[in-house]
Amino acid sequence: MPRRLRGAAYQGFYRLPHPVRRRIVRLIAPKYLVGAVCIVRDSDAREPGRLLLLRQPPGRGWGLPAGLLKKGEAPEVGAARELHEESGVRIAPDELTPAVPNAIVHPKGWVDTVFMGTVPASTTELVVDGGEVLEAVWFPLDDLPRLTPNTALVLGVYGIGPRAAEQTPSASS
């Protein structure tokens, strides 16, 4: 598109009322679901450490505490909420550390915001509901079980697990 025509299109767009502009953008722009993920380590464990993983139905692999954010919910609040709902582990949102990179854009249309946390496994009770989560277990980092593909991808971005050596170009900070 020639420069002048593109400039005129932008000027016309910005003259439209804000609600109309927002509707146009929502029709044209890609849509993403936004989730929050917690990578929780055992603060008592010796190196290489232990990681909290969950087995969810259908139970073919182990995953991280995670879920979709509620509308208007801050990512760290959603991460803390999902962690507690799925495992019984409580970490205050301000005690979670944003991972670097903090967001992972998945090719299938969702974005995960990722947070790190630690708790002492020896004094932290794991509680699961048996419906959404079948099991919660601490695993040694050097002996992880079979992971779900998305969990392997997320952990790999942070140098953990079977995909640790891979570079994920879709990760962004």
Rank of each mutant, 00 (worst) to 15 (best):
residue 44 D to F: 10
residue 142 D to Y: 02
residue 104 I to A: 09
residue 140 P to E: 02
residue 135 E to L: 15
residue 77 V to G: 08
residue 60 R to A: 12
residue 97 T to Q: 07
residue 68 L to E: 09
residue 168 T to C: 05
residue 85 E to L: 03
residue 170 S to Q: 06
residue 100 V to A: 13
residue 145 P to S: 08
residue 113 T to V: 01
residue 134 L to G: 09
residue 87 S to K: 02
residue 102 N to L: 05
residue 78 G to N: 08
residue 73 E to G: 04
residue 119 V to D: 03
residue 104 I to K: 07
residue 115 F to H: 07
residue 98 P to S: 06
residue 69 L to R: 10
residue 106 H to W: 04
residue 156 G to D: 04
residue 162 P to T: 05
residue 141 L to W: 03
residue 124 T to R: 00
residue 113 T to F: 10
residue 40 V to A: 09
residue 91 I to Q: 05
residue 170 S to R: 09
residue 96 L to Y: 05
residue 61 G to A: 05
residue 125 E to L: 13
residue 95 E to I: 15
residue 83 L to M: 04
residue 48 P to N: 07
residue 164 A to E: 15
residue 141 L to Q: 01
residue 116 M to E: 07
residue 145 P to M: 10
residue 102 N to Q: 11
residue 141 L to V: 07
residue 142 D to H: 10
residue 147 L to F: 11
residue 122 S to L: 10
residue 117 G to A: 11
residue 167 Q to E: 15
residue 154 V to S: 05
residue 103 A to F: 00
residue 84 H to L: 04
residue 160 I to W: 13
residue 41 R to S: 07
residue 76 E to H: 11
residue 89 V to H: 01
residue 136 A to T: 12
residue 126 L to C: 02
residue 68 L to I: 05
residue 59 G to S: 04
residue 75 P to D: 00
residue 146 R to L: 02
residue 146 R to F: 11
residue 57 P to Y: 08
residue 130 G to W: 10
residue 143 D to P: 05
residue 63 G to Q: 13
residue 106 H to G: 10
residue 66 A to S: 13
residue 88 G to T: 07
residue 102 N to A: 15
residue 134 L to E: 03
residue 86 E to I: 04
residue 166 E to V: 06
residue 49 G to Q: 03
residue 87 S to T: 14
residue 124 T to W: 03
residue 120 P to M: 06
residue 56 Q to S: 14
residue 56 Q to E: 13
residue 117 G to P: 13
residue 146 R to K: 14
residue 72 G to F: 02
residue 120 P to I: 12
residue 82 E to T: 06
residue 130 G to F: 14
residue 125 E to D: 10
residue 50 R to C: 09
residue 87 S to A: 10
residue 84 H to R: 13
residue 40 V to M: 05
residue 78 G to H: 00
residue 156 G to E: 12
residue 58 P to L: 08
residue 85 E to N: 10
residue 82 E to I: 12
residue 151 T to D: 11
residue 132 E to M: 14
